[in-house]
Structure formats: C-alpha cells, structure tokens
Amino acid sequence: MHQNRRNFLQLGAISLFTLSSNSNLFAGTKIITKEDLYIAKKDYDVFQSVRNKLKLVQTYIGYGNFNIINLDTMLRISKNASNIEEFTKAEIDFLEFIFYYNPSSHGFFGERISNNITDTIDKKIITKIPRTGHYLFKGKAEKTYYEMTNDVGSSLTLTSGIRSIVKQTKLFLDKINAVEGNISVAAKSIAPPAFTYHAIGDFDVGKKGFGYANFTSRFANTNEFKKIKELKYVDVRYTINNKDGVRYEPWHITTI
C-alpha cells in the first residue's frame, strides 16, 4: 500500500469510479439533478462488496476495536480470517478513491484532516470511555467530556468518539447506500473519510435512552442540549448554516 496517494485522481480514478450527475447507482429509483453526484451504476458490485467486507471485519474484531483500526490491519484481517475474503485490487482502488477525492465538487467544504489513507491512531494517547464502547483522546477531549457529564448530568453519554479512517469510511459508504447512492446528500450527514474531525479530537454526545434521535435535530430540544448551550467551555462544530456545508449537528462537540 502506498503511503501517499493524493495524486490518485490524476492517475485515472475518474475512469474507474465515476462520481456522476447522470448515473445513479440505484437507477430508476430517483430523479437525478445535475447538482447531485452519484457513484456510477457500473461500480455497484465493488461498492457493495467493500461495504460487506468492512461489516465482516467490524464483526470479527468488535465494534469498539473497529473505531480505531487502521487500513493495513483491516486488510490483514480480511486476508487471514476464514469468513472474510481478501480485498481485491478493484476494492482497494475504490477505498483509495473515496479517501483521496475532492468533495468540494459537490458542496462539502470541510477541512482535509488526514492526508494518508494509512494514517494510524496512536493507542498510547487514547482512552476507552467505560460503558460506551468508544474512545477519546487523552487531554482536552477526555477532560471536556467528563466536565460535561458532571455539569449536564448522568443522562448525558458519549455516542461517538474517535473514528479511524476505516471506521469513517464504513459510516460514509453506509450513508451513501442509505440515500440511494447520492454522495452529495451523504456528505451532509457524514463527512468523507479524510475529512472527519473525529480523527483528531471531536466527539458526539447524546441523551441516554434517546437512541437514533440523538443524531437528529430532536436532540436540540432535549434538556441535555439546553444545558450544553450554557457551558462556556463547549462549542458545537456544525452550527446552523455552517461553512462546511454540513447539516446542523447539535450533538457534535469540538475540542480543536
């Protein structure tokens, strides 16, 4: 695996995996506009096989460990595990394309956080938060979280902490699948893998027992969020009409 493939788009990725305004991965299920970009229908099989293998690796090593896994470890597991097939060249090309492409072409203007698809999270500087299955970076992120739980109350919980490139890739591809192959729509909810602040310190919080609603605008109506707004040491990353082109995320806490 090359350590840096930022020139991947210039090497023909567009001809391999076309972000297209007139090709719908799920053809015939939705009206396509020129503003929205889709993964081309011809890449459907590779797209789905990558999603399936990522899911199998996650099941194999556990959800908590999957949050911090790097690409090389993921590829090694897929190769050696008896119930997972090794990633093909086409599938690795797809992973690299999704990592290195420029999402500003479809309205996502977030900062590129990771430059190399093989970036690794240093386990010496992270800590697992009990009863959540998630990790935070030691220092400001961990301190901020525990201050919040102390000030807001025990009903506040960590819903998503550190996310490796592999974890963010899975989330992004699953979101693309959920919105019928529409990358433009997916990127408004889940940052492309190279652009997530979860890789360097941000984290999500929610109300215990609130389930998936913690990741919707309904969280802004909870008493927990009302208390969060009063905390002078806490900032929400994705405010209403934020410059990154991301939906409003009242649960997304920045420590950067």
Rank of each mutant, 00 (worst) to 15 (best):
N4E: 08
R5M: 12
R5T: 09
F17L: 10
A27G: 08
Y38C: 11
D43S: 15
V46F: 12
Q48W: 02
Q48Y: 13
V50H: 11
Q58A: 09
Y63V: 12
N65P: 04
N65S: 13
F66V: 10
E85K: 15
T88E: 14
A90K: 15
E91F: 09
F99V: 09
Y101G: 06
S104K: 13
F109R: 01
R112D: 01
S114V: 15
S114C: 07
T120S: 10
T127V: 13
T132G: 08
H134Q: 10
K138Q: 01
G139I: 04
A141Y: 00
E142G: 03
Y145V: 00
Y146F: 10
Y146I: 01
M148L: 08
T149V: 14
D151N: 12
D151C: 01
T159G: 11
I162G: 04
I162D: 03
R163Y: 02
L173Y: 11
N177W: 10
I183Y: 07
A187Q: 06
G209E: 05
T216M: 05
R218M: 08
N223E: 09
E224W: 00
E224A: 10
E230G: 01
K232D: 12
V234H: 04
R237V: 10
D244C: 00
V246D: 02
R247P: 00
Y248A: 00
I253E: 09
I253D: 09
T255A: 05
I256E: 07
